[in-house]
Design a protein around this nucleic acid. Structure first.
Lengths: 223, 223
DNA sequence: ACCTGAACACCGTTCAAGT
DNA sequence: ACCTGAACACCGTTCAAGT
């Protein structure tokens, strides 16, 4: 009955499993150790502490995103594909998503998607400054969308709509909210995501041609 | 030396102060109680538990956003103003921002901004379904932007760029990242936010007139 | 090198006792 | 009604002891 030796990898995997099964709050060094059938302190031979463990979880989840990127496709389609790939995190690891999104990763796992996105945008003809701006805009949108999808941050819309449909919001105080209650109460995450993604891509497409025109036309400054 | 009586309000205020001073991790029922000079268990006479306290923090912070909304302004400017108002949270309560964004609020404090946003978008001529979609897109973008601004979620860009500029990223593996390192390393949050907001608003403006054209033209279905 | 139990300084919350 | 200390079942991590 020789069990596999303890390792950082095994510990991280166990942590991910625990999070997905019982939620991010349920995680503790002691629970993870119990999961693996070892003493708590054994973990510390492979992981510096809880914080590092959670970083490991985030890195591992992120590194498992499948970025199938067709270099010959139009850049708008490539951006779309990359955004969708990212969204898969919310599907495969819903309860770890918050972790992926809220931990700043210093590993190559975090850098690879960035490298691809930058390359795609540069390829579309944006200069360095615009490329970085675009990337940040997309990341903001994607992060916000994932958090909504994953249940964190229905800050308003769907969540208290339960209260709305149930208790009923005072229509005098909140006429729009109550008249749109049924729409606010449901949410097709995929459609919602695609809608915004589409708008975003169209917006930067328009920005691109406008920038070109300006650059070719009268040779103006940046932006 | 008659101190004010304990109350939910005083407890929440103390909690916000503690979070802003020492970070969200530092908060505990015991610390808050100590802050107020009372026994831990006294808190439970005014607040059901820690979770409810954190909800109170989120509600209070959110309710202090100043929504000065000019009903006569063009709808694009009103949307812009509402988005900016929201962003003020990150300035006034940076370390509570995560809480505001990640807790689903059922109070009227959370509903008021939604009501305003919905009214503005309806006023712009969008139908119910589109209005809700627009709202969700904006919320996603704003939430993502705030999290970046607040230090949570530099998931990629600025954070490990410190590592980049310092250690230097392998330019062979990540050519774009390393060539854009200096741009990735700095971030003017206001400019960044305004850039995306502008693009978003232009995008939904374009979407609006396109929708109108289609509706007036050949009387097609939704969307 | 890897594992570990005991111990320390913390948690949130229940409960019974006070006023 | 409000306050409270003791107690319980948890935490993460240090340290010294084992192999």
């Amino acid at each position: 009955m020789a069990t596999e030796p303890l390792s950082r990898g095994r510990i991280v995997t166990a942590a991910i499993g625990l999070i997905e099964r019982e939620g991010a709050d349920a995680i503790s060094m002691r629970r993870v150790a119990a999961e693996l059938g070892v003493g708590v302190m054994s973990l510390y031979n492979h992981v510096p502490g809880k914080d590092a463990l959670l970083n490991g979880v985030a890195e591992t989840v992120l590194s498992q995103v499948e970025f199938t990127d067709d270099p010959d496709a139009h850049w708008t389609d490539r951006v779309r594909g990359q955004a969708r790939a990212f969204r898969q995190i919310a599907h495969h690891y819903p309860r770890s998503t918050m972790l992926v999104v809220s931990r700043q990763l210093h590993s190559t796992a975090g850098l690879l998607p960035v490298e691809r996105a930058l390359a795609t945008l540069r390829g579309a003809g944006f200069d360095g400054a615009d490329t970085v701006r675009m990337l940040r805009m997309f990341i903001a949108y994607i992060v916000g969308s994932l958090l909504r999808e994953v249940g964190v941050t229905p800050t308003f819309a769907p969540a208290q709509t339960r209260t709305i449909s149930a208790d009923g919001v005072d229509p005098a105080l909140f006429p729009e909210v109550s008249s749109l209650a049924s729409l606010l109460g449901e949410c097709d995450h995929e459609e919602e995501f695609e809608f915004g993604l589409d708008l975003l891509i169209k917006a930067i497409e328009a920005y691109a041609v406008q920038g070109e025109g300006r650059r070719e036309g009268r040779k103006e400054g940046t932006r």
